[in-house]
Write a protein that binds this DNA or RNA. Structure first.
Length: 111
DNA sequence: TGCCTGACCACCC
DNA sequence: GGGGTGGCCAGGC
């Protein structure tokens, strides 16, 4: 693609691709936090990562991206739970509305 | 051009 | 241990 990518390492369009790439790089059975994904991209836009996931996350294992503290994505806890169980991600019961929590200490992915 | 929103995080009480 | 506030990043109107 000509133009658009001049001296910047990752243009705006690359940001989305980078987020999806990082999420796609998360091995099964492991999870990463939004902040970790943003940190891997060299940015602190944890919220921006969530925005990308909410829009383009349908093409990547979005359930492998969780919030800090091991809580599943907001409003998608019930949809992500079967995925964790299918991949062998250790879960812990919780009193939260999600009903469960992810054991980041054992399933947190670190590159 | 500027403001608000949003699958968030870290810090403080 | 739990709850609340401010801040950061990117996109859309």
């Amino acid at each position: 693609m000509p133009a658009r990518s001049a001296g910047r390492p990752e243009p705006v369009e690359g940001f989305v691709a980078a987020v999806l790439a990082v999420v796609a790089n998360i091995p099964a059975g492991r999870v990463a936090t939004y902040g970790d994904v943003a940190a891997l991209l060299g940015s602190r836009g944890a919220r921006a990562v969530g925005q990308v996931m909410a829009r383009y996350g349908s093409d990547v294992p979005w359930w492998r991206v969780v919030r800090a503290g091991g809580r599943p994505p907001s409003g998608h806890a019930a949809s992500a739970r079967p995925h964790y169980e299918a991949e062998g991600v250790p879960l812990r019961p919780s009193d939260d509305a999600d009903g469960y929590r992810i054991d980041l200490a054992a399933s947190r992915w670190r590159p």
